[in-house]
Design a protein around this nucleic acid. Structure first.
Lengths: 236, 236
DNA sequence: TTGCAGTTTTGAACTTGTTCAAAAAAGCTC
DNA sequence: GAGCTTTTTTGAACAAGTTCAAAACTGCAA
């Protein structure tokens, strides 16, 4: 049901058509918004028949996945320069998160609609789905880099779970960002500042022997969560 | 735009028609699922014309709000008995959360679709919207009861923010629950157990003088979050 | 070149949410 | 009860996502 059956391109010309449709779609999504852009308009703009768009993209929603990939790439690039320069955990985390929301800013309104479709557990677009697994893994890997490249002292057992934890945390921030109607998304940036501060302090505290039992529980929890996310079945 | 313009019933007969449509809708949603149920079918089932359904309900999505209200009421009732018996904070919180997910279980698949529409920041159904404010307030009030009726020692400043914090936390759990495909939602219940345990321990720790600076920051954060949620503008 | 299998493209048709002008019914005032 | 206003109801029409059978095209083997 959920697996992609269209989008299988055999020809070179096919690739081009596919690309043309995608380009037209993303352009119009950005200019006019997701809902305002009809499949007919996309097909027109791309110079193909309506049905042809459906030959390459299963549905209107599937056009979104390309957007994901694109912004993710951009974010990786933007993060790289920060991660090279900075060794301080707090600064690294702040840098990565800020660059994400800065990069996403032009798509804010659009992203809300995306999120809507992505929130459906049955949708292949939802960030916990099998189909999203590659992007998710890459995203978690980015946070692993944030931690590993830093000079922060992190208990070993926590180190293993921290990247996933940060990824989850960043998903929460994204959720907030989507709902953030403040000018220039100032609320989100404030939230990022505050929570990163607290988070880094918590990580510091985690080394304290007094914290051991609580830390154990927390790590156990995150471990389990991670398994759960991995265990989402592909087909409903 | 977002404000309800339909649904204003003046007549007694109007009330009846409205009720008939709603009943038909909820029944069919449960039986066949949200997407499978067409507005035409609902109108048919209710014995009215298609347009009439739209006279009472702005859109298909608006039919969902009734569902919210209904389940919320049920949850209040289910929680009341627990809150009367129990004084221990952990037990109270566990009881309230468990009863929520138990009550919601028959609607699990349906709830996923609901969530999808609710996740749209522009949707009046989204839990952070103005239109959801009444239910949200009631929901937060429930968590206030959980805390107030307990014999837990909570720093005063934290006490003020705890209900909202717990509400947020419960929203997160709900998000997990929606994505939980495990049999009988066992993963969710496990998560509830684990997180409630940690949460209660954290609350206990919060009294420790060592924790004061961190506590201050955390409370400040929650305060701000609460303002933000309240500040979501009604019109886009 | 011709025939053929696979690939791509087309556009009409279908479904379903939504709108709207007009008809019907109900209330109300005199 | 007649005439008026307001409320309710109707169903046709519209928009946009999606499907599908048929046409067009492509590459290749004989």
């Amino acid at each position: 049901m959920t697996t992609a059956r269209s989008g299988v391109v055999k020809t070179d010309k096919g690739q081009q058509t596919r690309a043309a449709i995608l380009e037209a779609a993303l352009e119009m999504f950005r200019a006019r918004g997701y809902e305002q852009t009809t499949m007919r308009a996309i097909a027109d703009e791309a110079g193909v028949a309506l049905g042809n768009a459906y030959y390459y993209f299963h549905s209107k929603e599937h056009l979104i996945q390309a957007f994901y990939g694109k912004t993710h790439e951009e974010h990786l690039v933007a993060s790289a320069s920060i991660l090279e320069k900075e060794r301080d955990l707090k600064a690294r985390l702040l840098g990565v998160l800020r660059s994400k929301f800065e990069m996403l800013e032009p798509y804010h309104q659009f992203a809300g609609k995306l999120f809507k479709t992505a929130a459906d557990p049955q949708s292949p677009l939802n960030p916990f789905s099998d189909e999203s697994n590659p992007v998710r893994q890459q995203s978690i890997a980015l946070f692993a880099k944030v931690v590993e490249g830093s000079n922060a002292k992190v208990p070993k057992e926590l180190l293993a779970e921290l990247p996933f934890m940060l990824w989850l945390y960043h998903m929460g921030l994204t959720l907030f960002w989507i709902h953030d109607a403040s000018p220039k998304r100032s609320r989100t940036f404030r939230l990022v500042n505050r929570t990163v501060d607290i988070l880094v302090r918590l990580i510091g505290l985690a080394s304290n022997p007094l914290m051991k039992p609580l830390r154990k529980s927390a790590i156990r929890l995150i471990e389990e969560l991670r398994e759960d996310v991995a265990a989402v079945p592909g087909e409903a």
